[in-house]
Simulated scan of single mutants.
Amino acid sequence: MIRQRFTKHPSPLAKRKRRLFLLRLFFLALLSATLLALFVWFARSDNFRIKQVEVAGTAITSPEDITTLVLQVLSGSYFGVVPRNHFLFYQKAPIEKAILGAWKRIERVAVESKDITTLVVGVEERKPVGLWCLSTMEESRPVFSNECYLLDQEGFIFAKAADFSGETFIRYYGKVAAPDPIGSYFLTPAAFKEMNFFFNSIQKLNLVPERLFVSVSGERELLIKGGARLFLPKDADLGDALENLELALKDDAFSEKAEDIPFTLDYIDLRFNNKIFYKLR
């Protein structure tokens, strides 16, 4: 018996579907390649890349130095394709972090786009409220140096001070945690704010703070303009110390004019809660 072999040929409809599928696949690949090429052109085109940086808010920090740093942060690319300085793909956080790390004087940074080729970097510099100065101990007594650094309102040491020979700022002496004082805190921010509130308050009593020394053990000695000294509690609330000081100055021993007290008083010791000790010269 002879068997015949038949070859099954695709129908015209199947051929048509196959051609349509291949055609769609071709156009999809062509579209993908075109979109990829357009994306690469868009990403790498100089027309959409940040080339200029405007810096606002500086008083001492050099705007040119900030501009140079920003452009350095924006150099290079993501995965070797997308430039970091593209106006759609640049990241603010690395710029802000780099600026704050490079200049401790700068407290806040804001980065915004002005247009597709220009960034605006706004900075706020710290304002000095005092000086932290070096000191050493010789024969169990502190020796005060004139090498000083600027402090802000939280006790943050942010820059080397110029040669201040006048009485512009209160001077603070005492150890800080890090070998390099810049970037360190003198006291905690809360303790420093409380201390400055105390200083502002006693000026109403004609006691003008001149120098605060904090020993390694935390003892605090405040020198008043005129030579008087206040021994302050190291842990207790300075609000209580202020009340005790006001009470002490009402004693008959201080019956002279208030402005003369800093020159006739040797010290007042406020370290022992409600017990107040003082000595006149």
Rank of each mutant, 00 (worst) to 15 (best):
A102T: 06
A110F: 15
L100R: 13
I95A: 04
V121A: 01
D115N: 13
P83L: 13
R84T: 08
F87C: 05
K104W: 01
E107H: 10
A93C: 10
P83Q: 11
V121N: 01
G101D: 13
H86F: 09
L119Q: 03
T118E: 11
L119E: 02
F89Q: 06
P83V: 14
T117L: 04
R105M: 08
V111S: 02
A110W: 15
T117A: 03
E107V: 02
I99V: 08
N85Q: 12
S113E: 12
K97I: 04
Q91R: 10
K97Q: 14
P83H: 12
W103Q: 09
L88K: 09
V121I: 09
K114G: 00
S113C: 02
V111G: 01
I95F: 04
E112C: 07
Y90A: 00
Y90G: 00
V109G: 09
V120D: 00
V121H: 01
Q91D: 06
L88Y: 07
V123P: 00
L88E: 03
A98K: 03
D115E: 04
Y90V: 00
A102K: 10
A102N: 02
H86R: 12
E107K: 15
A110E: 15
K92N: 09
D115H: 06
N85C: 06
L88R: 08
G122A: 14
P94V: 01
L100P: 14
F87W: 13
D115C: 06
K92C: 04
V81E: 00
E112I: 14
V123K: 00
D115F: 09
K97T: 07
E112V: 15
K97D: 12
R108Q: 11
T118P: 13
N85G: 05
N85Y: 08
H86P: 08
E96A: 14
G122L: 13
A93F: 11
Q91L: 07
G101W: 05
A110C: 14
V82Y: 11
I99W: 05
E107F: 11
P83R: 13
I95Q: 05
S113L: 14
L88F: 11
N85H: 13
A110V: 15
V81C: 07
L88W: 07
P94S: 04
K104G: 05
S113W: 08
V123Q: 00
K92V: 10
R84N: 13
L100F: 13
L88D: 03
I106H: 10
L100A: 15
